[in-house]
Amino acid sequence: MRSVRKGGFLTSVAVLACACVLATAGDATAKDPGGSQFDVEGNNDKDGGRTLESRIVFTGATGGSGGEASGTFTPAADWSPPACWYEPKWTPDQFADEFRERWDIPHASGVGEAYRLSQDHYINGKPYEDFNKKEAGKGLWWDAVRDETRAEAGDPAAFACDTRTFWVENGEPPNVENAVTPEVLAQLAYARIKVPDTAVTLAPANATKVNLPTWAWLDKAKFDEVSVTASLDVGGVHIQATTTAKPVSLKLEPGTPDAELYPASGECTINDDGSIGEPYATGKANQDPPCGITYLRSSGDSTFDLQATVTWEVAWTGSGGTGGDLPDGTFGTTQAVTVQEIQAVNR
């Protein structure tokens, strides 16, 4: 996983705010608008809670191709998309409204000092004055967003973006790590790509025989490239990136060491037409399959778990002519294979 540098530190305001939450009765909450004290569900991700209050919009294969998707692939390298990032959120007036809403806790106790410090920071000129309303149209307020799924799993990287809400002038790059860029958007889109399952077609289809080559293949129509576009359009910030995954190979693992693979590596490369392997046809009984398995013993009263894993090559393009490669992704499924005993096979 790529390291994430903390853009700042948890200030006394955030610490006091956390303490106030514990001291507050009923449903009242006290949270400094800065830092990473979030509890509002994201308004653009209803299928997994990945982000909190994000303005990023994802389109494309976030639900898979043709409704046949099984899940998100796993990076083949020791890498993962950002667990938290910073993005533009509010104009001065919008941030003022957000600030007042978050501090609308008339019956909470013990929040006076935290509230005063936040007022000084954003209103009273230490360092910002009246939410920078005099700079309206010249910039935006940026805030942290985290991958809530990874936060719930206890991933420390999800809490690394702890810089308080900060002002960025138009055209100026934010001076924090993981500020949203086309590349960061591409990485976030990577995590949203859904690919179809990898249940291969087998011949024989229902049950194969010991020492009989079993042909395996995947159709082009099912395994085509998929892509997700992540875009951000807030105030004067307009950036986007499209991440595209293309299937390049299929790896077979027979579920038993008593088997021979075709090819011997078990890696079946993609054909020129986008398919993987080759369908069995009458007259090919004396041929070795370009992609397949020969089981050398029976599965008895059980079955063998055939693991089929597709490797996806991933690249991205983004605003301003940006682009590049991202780590390959893999996604696999397991299917039960029945292997029956016979005395001999004449080929």
Results as ranks from 00 to 15, higher is better:
Val195Trp: 03
Glu253Ile: 02
Lys6Arg: 14
Thr181Arg: 09
Ala179Cys: 00
Gly112His: 04
Asp162Ser: 06
Asp27Lys: 07
Trp316Tyr: 09
Ser249Ile: 01
Gly300His: 05
Tyr295Val: 01
Pro92Ile: 11
Asn124Lys: 14
Thr229Lys: 15
Ala25Arg: 09
Ser275Asn: 06
Phe58Cys: 13
Arg2Tyr: 02
Pro127Trp: 04
Glu172Asp: 12
Gly277Tyr: 01
Glu267Lys: 15
Lys89Asp: 01
Ser12Tyr: 12
Asn124Val: 08
Cys18Lys: 15
His238Glu: 14
Val228Tyr: 12
Cys268Pro: 07
Gly67Ser: 01
Gln37Ile: 00
Phe9Ser: 15
Leu22Glu: 12
Thr11Gln: 10
Leu252Pro: 11
Ser265Trp: 10
Ala285Asp: 14
Phe304Leu: 04
Gly137Phe: 06
Cys291Thr: 12
Phe58Lys: 12
Phe9Ile: 11
Ala216Ser: 03
Ala158Cys: 08
Asn211Cys: 06
Gly8Leu: 04
Thr181Asn: 00
Ala205Lys: 13
Ala191Thr: 09
Gly324Asp: 02
Val195Ser: 00
Pro254Gly: 02
His107Glu: 08
Gly8Ala: 15
Thr51Glu: 12
Trp85Thr: 04
Arg116Asn: 07
Glu278Phe: 02
Ala336Gln: 15
Ser70Trp: 08
Ala264Arg: 13
Val4Gly: 11
Leu188Asp: 05
Gly329Ile: 06
Asp233His: 01
Val13Tyr: 10
Leu117Glu: 14
Val13Phe: 06
Tyr295Gly: 08
Trp312Pro: 02
Thr309Trp: 01
Gly67Tyr: 03
Glu113Leu: 11
Thr294Ala: 09
Asp162Asn: 14
Gln343Asn: 12
Glu267Asn: 15
Pro290Gly: 03
Trp141Ala: 06
Val314Lys: 05
Tyr280Cys: 07
Ala151Thr: 08
Thr72Gln: 05
Gly329Ser: 10
Pro127Ser: 09
Thr208Leu: 04
Asn44Gly: 09
